[in-house]
Nucleic acid binder design. Structure first.
Length: 569
RNA sequence: CGGGACGUGGCCCAGCUUGGUAGGGCACUUGACUGGGGGUCAAGGGGUCGCGGGUUCAAAUCCCGCCGUCCCGACCA
């Protein structure tokens, strides 16, 4: 393709409000333009990258036996009512009506629709099945941001596995994990697999592929010594052992006028946070619930959701709390509470001689023995870990890393096959409900992440495999006949050698072509100019390392191939 | 949704406090020169100043409302 025929509107100035480097560069180099918040037009350069990214993903999906399909984006609301997710998804799902008033939605994921296709499976002999697609997803994000990193309309490669039993699902899950690792390696994305929460998709095992990056909005908790890595919402740490001296036979009243916080009690009454029980009142799917964590531990909302299977949680209002417990936040406790459910963090298990609120303003209790004095309905891991706490596997202090989620795989269970009626006959002739897995990669986000990882001050620097073109041939003068024809010839030769080539034949000064080639980030540049041509050579330059070589015309293809291979990252 | 900022040719912005016929840079068009790291000169084209209302002899500027975009806090690929 020739630059003179290609729409590459590069800008000389950065967009004003770009917060992520990838966004700034993708806009400036003419890859994308915003239409409205969270919706972007992909221009020709972006489409070239996107096609290559899709090719990589497709080849790996086919490699593990995936079959590509394409399911509608616009879907009847009824199918989401069947699965029970119409309400769960809430405001995040775009809804509309057709002219007859039929309720429709724009798909934000496709479990329901693939499960519908799955109803035609009839025998265990048909399983496993891996089905996938590249399809637009619509999500009414509350706050789109950072260019392509967080949008409301995007392409997702989503795949779904159907197996007869858990052992089969485990195998399918591992196949996808392997495929994902190869995909991100081939895309030049240094993704690390981490344990994750499965959110509102429903399911058990869940692994996110996270790429460390400044622009990231997630925190990965990682052990520098072993391979432990988890999303902050899921991460745990080894508990520093606390030895409790046995306390009195019953809780003791302690008047604590004015003491409202963990810190107040620590400072004024010598009750350190690790000896306190923090009582939080949450409304979990409408049910007022006491949530207990150690005084010095923060509550993880996501863990609470995961532990309770709730779809919605919120902190209780002060008046709700006062009505239920007769005291205000700051003096709350679970001792003797039986009319409200109590859920407690594992770190409180077996603890004795603790302090907590007495449900009377300005009064606390000490000498509280958790097992003896509190009726705990459910124990769960509820606390959010803090940087530096010991690794749960090896004890090394954990580190926090900002990261972007580029892929997510999880085991779904039978939620959708059950609700949508997928069933096959097993070897014994009895009906079996297949078990599903679900696996996603955000295509445009992956593009942005590659840009985020591979750029420098001069612009983008795409890895060869996904670059909008492999080689850029610059005709440094279009008026010099020898230069022009040599560039044309090289262009044809390189294309003939099977390379993806651009020819910059614009009537602009050489400096513009150099800058644009670097800004756009094409891995190898071949400069044809009168000066070198007089000696029968051209200049071949690698984008990533800036290495330049003067190469005779006959050796250009070979040299280009070498440099391209060196820039697969 | 809560808090903050912004909206002026295609892009980046000045002008607004103190109302008086809309400016600069980049880009674009034409011509000449130039030609290995974002050229020079000359001549041009292009703007309902986000939208609606109000105040005023007069509004980009002051007031009210709305819309849009961005940034900071709770979710996702």
């Amino acid at each position: 393709m020739r630059w003179s025929q290609l729409h590459i509107p590069t800008l000389r100035e950065d967009p004003a409000d770009a917060d992520a480097a990838s966004h700034r560069l993708l806009v400036r180099a003419g890859f994308i333009r915003q239409l409205m918040a969270g919706h972007y037009s992909l221009l020709p350069l972006a489409m070239r990258v996107r096609a290559k990214v899709i090719d990589v993903i497709r080849s790996e999906m086919n490699g593990i036996g995936g079959q590509e399909m394409l399911l509608p984006s616009m879907q009847p609301a009824s199918i989401w009512i069947k699965s029970g997710r119409l309400n769960v998804m809430g405001q995040e799902m775009f809804r509309l009506k057709d002219r007859r008033g039929a309720e429709m939605v724009l798909g934000m994921t496709h479990e329901e629709i693939f499960a519908t296709i799955g109803t035609e499976l009839s025998s265990y002999r048909d399983l496993p099945q891996f089905w996938y697609q590249f399809q637009t997803k619509f999500r009414d994000e509350p706050r789109p941001k950072s260019g392509l990193l967080r949008v409301r309309e995007f392409t997702m490669k989503d795949s779904y596995s159907f197996d007869v039993d858990e052992a089969g699902l485990d195998k399918s899950f591992e196949l996808h994990r392997g495929a994902y690792e190869r995909i991100f390696a081939r895309l030049g994305i240094p993704a690390i697999p981490v344990e994750a929460s499965s959110g509102n998709m429903g399911g058990s095992d869940s692994v996110e592929f996270m790429c460390p990056a400044e622009a990231g909005e997630d925190i990965v908790v990682r052990c520098p010594d072993c391979d432990y890595a988890a999303n902050l919402q899921k991460a745990t740490s080894a508990l520093t052992p606390v030895t409790d001296q046995s306390g009195p036979a019953a809780p003791q009243r302690l008047d604590t006028p004015g003491a409202r916080t963990i810190e107040d009690l620590d400072r004024d009454y010598q009750l350190p946070g690790e000896r306190q029980i923090k009582t939080l009142v949450q409304v979990i799917d409408g049910q007022l619930t006491l949530v207990l964590v150690r005084g010095d531990h923060p509550l993880s909302d996501q863990k609470l959701i995961d532990a309770t299977g709730a779809t919605e949680i919120r902190p209780a209002h002060p008046d709700e709390i006062r009505e239920a417990l007769g005291a205000s936040p700051g003096s709350l406790g679970a001792v003797g509470v039986t009319k409200l459910p109590v859920i407690a963090d594992l770190a409180l298990q077996g603890r004795a001689n603790m302090a907590t609120g007495a449900n009377t303003d300005d009064v606390h209790l000490t000498g509280v023995d958790v097992d003896r004095d509190i009726t705990v309905g459910q124990w769960a891991d509820l606390r959010e870990v803090t940087e530096g706490e010991p690794c749960p596997r090896c004890g090394t202090p954990l580190e926090f890393v900002r990261a972007i989620e580029v892929g997510h795989i999880f085991k779904l269970g039978r939620k959708y096959t059950t609700s949508l009626g997928v069933s096959v006959l097993g070897p014994d002739g009895n009906a079996v409900t297949p078990i599903m897995g679900s696996y996603g990669i955000g295509v445009e986000r992956a593009i942005a992440v590659i840009a985020e990882v591979h750029h420098d001050d001069a612009g983008l620097a795409w890895p060869t495999q996904v670059a909008p073109a492999e080689v850029n041939v610059l005709a440094l003068s279009v008026t010099d006949e020898a230069v022009r024809t040599t560039a044309e010839d090289l262009y044809a030769t390189l294309q003939g050698a099977g390379l993806d080539v651009l020819l910059d034949d614009r009537d602009v000064r050489p400096g513009v072509k150099f800058r644009d080639s670097e800004l756009v980030g094409i891995p190898v540049r071949v400069s044809v100019g009168a000066r070198d041509l007089a000696e029968g050579v051209v200049e071949v330059t690698g984008r990533a390392d800036g290495r330049k070589d003067r190469v005779p015309l006959s050796g250009v293809t070979e040299r280009v191939r070498e440099l391209l291979a060196a820039q697969i990252r």
